[in-house]
């Protein structure tokens, strides 16, 4: 019985990247955008869409409201002619905000769509316990992390740690809106309140889902109407709003980011 449960769990875990990104045909969605005149040759840029209850594509403004029921979103990318057919990388970052401030002890949910299903369990094990604090430090302070350097980041077809700018572009930075607890806090905790060192409220079981960073390898495609990349945001129930930052590394390996700040409809 126990082994069956373990097999079921491991099967579920191994399907995670597929579940996160497989959905309605990306091509079909792009064709729909083209048919409605939203995506066309002159529509350069990157935009975020979802389908509303009636099935119509809706573009999200930088600050917008969204239903928690939205299960699939589409990131529309339209590169220059010179970029067509070339490989690149997107980095999706999500910070879900609850009524409490974001704690740096939150674990970061990582995904890379290149992960082979046979290694998912091992990767999840190696990456367990990676906090926002550690994630930020790795990308901004050049510290070590086996999970991030050997699993999350990649060398081919696109080295995501090739330059300092690329490395830093993966950090959440201002999305967090809180400051790191520093060494002086540590001293004061040791001297003043060691007995209250752990606050149970900071260790809720939902913490692991509130900060996410995904690497998505894609090709610009050959269609002149652009490329639609689908993903499943899987909004957590406890979240009140979400900050989304999507960084496109382009074909020139120069990352540029776009932000959305979405509030969930009650």
């Amino acid at each position: 019985m126990r082994s069956r449960i373990l097999i079921a769990i491991s099967s579920l875990i191994s399907l995670t990247p597929t579940l996160l990104f497989a959905s309605e045909s990306e091509q079909k969605f792009c064709e729909d955008l083209a048919a409605r005149g939203i995506a066309h040759r002159a529509a350069l840029g990157e935009r975020l869409f979802y389908r509303n209850e009636t099935g119509e594509p809706v573009e999200l403004a930088r600050t917008d409201k969204i239903s928690r029921d939205v299960t699939v979103m589409f990131y529309y990318v339209h590169g220059e002619d010179s970029e067509l057919g070339q490989k690149s990388v997107l980095n999706f970052k999500f910070i879900y905000k609850t009524s409490k401030p974001i704690s740096r002890r939150l674990e970061v949910g990582l995904t890379n769509n290149q992960w082979p299903s046979s290694r998912i369990a091992r990767i999840r094990n190696d990456c367990a316990g990676l906090t926002i604090d550690g994630y930020e430090r790795f990308h901004l302070d050049n510290t070590r992390s086996y999970c991030l350097s050997r699993h999350f980041h990649q060398e081919a077809p696109f080295n995501t740690l090739a330059t300092v700018e690329q490395r830093q572009s993966f950090a959440f930075q201002d999305m967090l809106g809180t400051q790191s607890s520093g060494f002086f806090d540590l001293i004061s905790n040791l001297l003043i309140s060691p007995a209250r060192a752990i606050e149970p409220s900071q260790l809720s079981s939902t913490e692991g889902t509130l900060a996410r960073s995904w690497i998505w390898n894609y090709e610009y495609g050959t269609s002149p109407t652009g490329k639609c990349i689908s993903f499943k945001p899987d909004f957590p129930d406890s979240a009140k709003s979400v900050s989304i930052r999507i960084t496109n590394h382009g074909v020139n390996f120069f990352p540029h980011a776009r932000d959305w700040s979405l509030t969930f409809l009650e």
């Binding site: 704690s103 740096r104 002890r105 316990g129 990676l130 906090t131 604090d133 550690g134 994630y135 430090r137 790795f138 302070d141 510290t143 070590r144 992390s145 991030l148 790191s180 607890s181 520093g182 060494f183 806090d185 540590l186 004061s188 905790n189 040791l190 060691p194 209250r196 060192a197 752990i198 606050e199 900071q202």
Partner: peptide
């Protein structure tokens, strides 16, 4: 404690004050 803190920093581990205090 000081070196423990910096070792965790270098290994990209949480240096959250309350957690490190508990660890020490």
């Amino acid at each position: 404690s000081l070196l423990l803190y910096f070792a965790r920093f270098q290994m990209s581990l949480s240096t959250d004050a309350s957690f490190v205090a508990t660890l020490i």
